[in-house]
Structure formats: structure tokens, C-alpha cells
């Protein structure tokens, strides 16, 4: 049995008095693609942000790389974060910087690599996401899909051990979405990356998912492999796999 790379135990998340996630426990295993599913507003993004301490969990514990992170000091947690890449829903590129400079940020901040090596790495990562022509553009000059691809290039700049993608296919055409899936699989195999994805794209799920986590109204409804998810009797999960939407 593989040891989980991320382990969440009895996590509770709240915005003010409102409970968003209730008693969530789950494990994410290394070198697998785990897809988090659930209707809009069910708490998927909140779950990810709580795991990454972007929001402080109300209760419960989170272990990443087998280390308890909920009460970890900032410096130690920064080391953990440098091994995790995150693709945000809207890209979250820094608007004042070019795409090149956006991708250079983690490389300059977390490594001692020389300028030439960094430049080569950036150009390769942009080529991987088919965005070489936008190297010196600023985010405002890019479309939504292009911004997302540039943000993915930034997320994989450091070849992270864990890549977390919040709705990576949203706003992308089917071909780009499929090529993004291929890229994700390639990264998983090549760099032994663990990938966590929030997505609603059924085609994408079939292509890449190893494991499915299904959240409904802040509660964990299903946690298992893709095959198990397809055969489950849980109505919400069944409906999703039958009609491809919530």
C-alpha cells in the first residue's frame, strides 16, 4: 500500500459562521491523478485552499509529504510550497510582469540556477504549453485560455512534486483541453508528479483520472478509483457519469 502524499483528516472549513466543508477526510496518493468533483459552490476550491493553508482550516489536520502542516511555521511551510505547483482558476498571473517574468518568479526565488539555465527552462515550459509566441507579452494581451496555459507553465516551472489545478480546462477549446490533458499525463509519468485536479470535464476525467473525490454540499460523498466511481450506486456520482454534468 502506497503512503499518501497528502492526507486530510476531519477537516472543517468555515467562512465566518457558515460551514463550507464538514469533517472531510481523504488521502491523495503519489504519482496519481486525483480529480475532485462536485457542483458549483460545494467547496472544492475551498478544500484545496485549506490544504495549502491559503485559508486556515477551522479544525482538522492536513499532512503533506508526511508532515503536519496546519500549525507549521511559515518558513518550513514555504519549503513545502516550493515543491507544489498551483494553477488557479483564473490563472492569477501578475499583470505588471511579462509572461517570461511571471514564470521566472519561482525559479529565481527558490533555486540558485543561472540566468541562462532559467531562460532555457522558461522557454521550454512555454513551448510545452504552446505559448512560445507570447513569451514577452503581458497577461492583459492574452485571452483567457492563453492566460491559463501561461499560468500552467508557471505552476510547472520548478517541476513540482505535486501539481494542483483548479479547473484547468474551463474556457479552453476541446483540442487545447485534450493537449493539456496529454501534457498533464506526460508530466506525471516523466517527473513522477502527483496531480490534483478540480474539473467538470467528463472527457478530461476519462482521459486522466486515476482516483475520484466527489464532494457535495461540503461533505465527502465518494472517494475511490475511476472504475469504482463509474460503478457506484451513489446517485449524484452516477448522474454525473451518466449525463456529464450536475
Amino acid at each position: 500500500m502506497k503512503k499518501p502524499i497528502i492526507s486530510v483528516n476531519n477537516l472543517v472549513a468555515k467562512y465566518g459562521e457558515e460551514t463550507i466543508l464538514e469533517d472531510i477526510s481523504l488521502d491523495i496518493y503519489p504519482q496519481e491523478v486525483t480529480v475532485i468533483l462536485g457542483g458549483s459552490g460545494c467547496g472544492k476550491t475551498t478544500l484545496i485552499k485549506n490544504i495549502l493553508k491559503l485559508y486556515q482550516p477551522f479544525a482538522g489536520s492536513v499532512k503533506i509529504f508526511n508532515k503536519e502542516v496546519t500549525n507549521m511555521d511559515e518558513q518550513e511551510f514555504d519549503d513545502i510550497l516550493s515543491r507544489i505547483g498551483m494553477l488557479f482558476q483564473n490563472g492569477a498571473l501578475l499583470n505588471s510582469l511579462s509572461i517570461f517574468d511571471n514564470i521566472a518568479i519561482p525559479l529565481e526565488q527558490h533555486t540558485r540556477l543561472s540566468k541562462n539555465v532559467i531562460e532555457k527552462m522558461i522557454k521550454v515550459k512555454l513551448d510545452l504549453v504552446n505559448l512560445s509566441y507570447a513569451t514577452y507579452m503581458v497577461p492583459a494581451e492574452l485571452s483567457g485560455g492563453m492566460k491559463k496555459r501561461a499560468a500552467l507553465a508557471r505552476a510547472i516551472a520548478l517541476d513540482p512534486d505535486i501539481l494542483i489545478c483548479d479547473e484547468p480546462s474551463a474556457g479552453l477549446d476541446p483540442l487545447t483541453s485534450a493537449s493539456l490533458d496529454e501534457l498533464i499525463l506526460k508530466l506525471k509519468n516523466l517527473l513522477n508528479m502527483t496531480i490534483v485536479i478540480v474539473t467538470h470535464e467528463l472527457a478530461s476525467i476519462h482521459r486522466i483520472a486515476d482516483r475520484i473525490i466527489f464532494i457535495d454540499n461540503g461533505r465527502l460523498l465518494f472517494n475511490g478509483t475511476l472504475e469504482e466511481a463509474k460503478q457506484t450506486d451513489i446517485q449524484e456520482v452516477k448522474t454525473f457519469f451518466e449525463v456529464g454534468r450536475f
Binding site: 540556477l113 541562462n116 539555465v117 532555457k120 527552462m121 521550454v124 515550459k125 517541476d159 517527473l191
Partner: peptide, 10 residues
Amino acid sequence: DSAGIAFIDE
């Protein structure tokens, strides 16, 4: 990793 390949290219 990609840093290693970039180094070899350099």
C-alpha cells in the same frame, strides 16, 4: 528534471 536538461543544453 527540466533544470538538468536546461543545464545540458547550456
